[in-house]
Design a protein around this nucleic acid. Structure first.
Length: 504
RNA sequence: GCCCCCAUCGUCUAGAGGCCUAGGACGCCACCCUUUCAAGGUGGAGAUCACCGGUUCGAAUCCGGUUGGGGGCACCA
């Protein structure tokens, strides 16, 4: 089947040596967008050749989070343990050993690869020497042209061989989708190892074999792979494969403009997910790290992105991961949710004991105040914490109305209490409560805000809260009255010396 | 050290030779709205387009160099 009849085939090749990384997610997203935009095929391949560092937990995390982001693929490993999906499986490198062995043999037979008996210690010594002489660190070529006799001796001595690729000394040029014409002089490269002495095939070899076997037409990956490309082109030529189109997208950066790392930034998608970032916001944000539609629009759903995405419009320079901007976008997406949708998304962040109807009722109160879903507990903690706990959240002085003292606070609470206490449960609603409270304010000739403050602190335990009367409606009559009593008691216990000016 | 890549407000970016006295967004500041906080509205500060030299009637846009930054140089991926 000639590749030209298959359309664009792209792949994502995560390595399960850690949880899904922000950079991997973005690369994955760009590949997905390219496939969807062009009606091509998207392949997921798990690069688990590093058996020491790969774990099933990480693979699980990667796949779960890709799903969470809404990134779908057409071919890939079967997650639930059944068969792989697609005609070019298996899609885990750990299951493709046979192919690798066959291709290594072809390279060996053609003289494009050879056995190397140098030990890691010997190699290390050479590198040190090269460093001293300010020479580029590369393989010396000691085993490059071993005679059969020499080889036999080394093997008799019990030496295990790694297999090195014989790099042709030539200039390699390719046209990069985002960077244009790029050229490297492979004469500067040393012969690199493609199969370790323990028999494990290595990255720069297996990617090439798999990309060819899976008919990958476009290799879109991070810029950190740019310098691997000439090596891979050399291997692919030796194997007689068709050359894919390469595209190296810019890196995502730490605030100091170095490559985004765990050390300096939050890099795992799971961590953002757990804080309550929406996948829609994350996808939108990630897409704009290195790309823009060329217009001033900036809020896009995944299908809209796929519709607009052009790989040619991807930037060359790296982009700093700006958390403030992610926060903003997350707020935009949260506000665009209906109350029902928001309640559903909030559910996992709230105590199970909280009733669904309460969660739904609180949605409009918190919607425009949430940056992350996880912030909800800080906003409505007063609803599910006990009256006693809430009372510990504030000092008596915080009950004082602006510019006033304890006596005023007490008076305010007493009058408010008298005004709302007679309300039956059936009338315990935000609008009525507000009407009563405003009447009290008018009677006392206070600004409403000054009067509401002690009440807010008494009810929610904080000086900053969701809308007061809606909060009271949610809390219910009995608990509100109890909390006003608690506040009054706190005022009584307060040392008289407390100054009215301390409440700012 | 060697190789490669990159360079527009603090950040993400628009910009494909004249539409640019460089536009938008985030962030920041002020004001308005307002029961707090948000959200929203209005306005503002913020970039001699890294620098130097070409090409051109004309350059943020093209070319060269410099500087700065980044990435890569494994029996990791």
């Amino acid at each position: 089947m000639p590749p030209e009849f298959e359309g664009i085939r792209v792949r994502m090749a995560p390595s399960p040596t850690g949880p899904l990384h922000v950079g991997t997610a973005r690369t994955s997203l760009y590949n997905h967008l390219l496939a969807r935009h062009t009606g091509g095929t998207y392949v997921l391949r798990i690069e688990d050749t590093d058996r020491a560092r790969s774990t099933v937990e990480h693979e699980r995390d990667i796949i779960d989070n890709l799903h969470w982001l809404g990134i779908t693929w057409d071919e890939g490993p079967q997650v639930a343990g059944g068969d792989d999906i697609g005609p070019f499986g298996p899609y885990r490198q750990s299951q493709r050993a046979e192919l690798y062995a066959a291709e290594v043999q072809r390279l060996l037979d053609a003289g494009s690869a050879y056995r190397c008996y140098c030990t890691p210690e010997e190699l290390e010594a050479v590198h040190l020497e090269q460093e001293h002489r300010h020479e580029p660190p590369r393989y010396s070529g000691r085993c490059r042209d071993l005679t059969d006799v020499a080889r036999a001796e080394l093997e008799a001595a019990g030496r295990r061989a790694a297999i090195r690729f014989r790099v042709p000394a030539e200039v390699v040029r390719f046209s990069d989708l985002v960077r244009g014409e790029v050229e490297f002089d492979n004469a500067l490269l040393g012969d690199f190892v493609i199969v370790r002495a323990d028999g494990a095939p290595l990255y720069n070899f297996v990617v090439v074999v798999d990309d060819a076997a899976m008919h990958i037409s476009h290799v879109i990956r991070g810029e950190d792979h740019l310098s691997n490309t000439p090596k891979q082109i050399a291997v692919l030529r030796a194997l007689g494969y068709r050359e894919p189109v390469f595209g190296h997208i810019p890196l995502i950066l730490n605030p100091d403009r170095s490559k985004m790392s765990k050390r300096k930034s939050q890099t795992s998608i799971t961590a953002y997910r757990e804080q309550g970032y929406l996948p829609e916001a994350m996808v939108n944000f990630l897409a704009f790290l290195g790309w823009s539609p060329g217009t001033e629009e900036e809020v896009f759903t995944l299908p809209e992105l796929a519709d607009r995405f052009e790989i040619e419009h991807v930037h060359k320079a790296g982009a700093v991961f700006d958390l403030a901007r992610l926060d903003y976008l997350n707020g935009v997406y949260i506000r665009s949710l209906t109350d029902e949708q928001l309640a559903l998304r909030l559910r996992p962040f709230l105590p199970a004991a909280l009733e669904d109807r309460t969660v739904l009722a609180m949605a409009p109160l918190v919607k425009e105040r949430l940056v992350r879903l996880g912030d909800v507990t800080g906003l409505v903690g007063f609803l599910f914490e006990s009256d006693a706990t809430v009372a510990t959240w504030y000092e008596a002085a915080e009950l004082h109305p602006k510019g006033r003292g304890a006596q005023d606070a007490e008076q305010a609470l007493n009058r408010l209490q008298a005004a709302i206490e007679p309300l039956p449960d059936a009338d315990w609603a935000a609008d009525l409560l507000e009407t009563r409270a405003r009447e009290v304010a008018a009677e006392m000739a206070w600004k409403p805000g000054d009067l509401f403050k002690p009440l807010r602190v008494a009810i929610t335990g904080r000086t900053v809260s969701p809308p007061l009367f809606g909060s009271m409606e949610l809390l219910g009559r009995d608990r509100c009255m109890a909390r006003i009593d608690d506040a009054l008691r706190k005022l009584e216990a307060e040392p008289v010396s407390a100054s009215p000016a301390t409440d700012r």
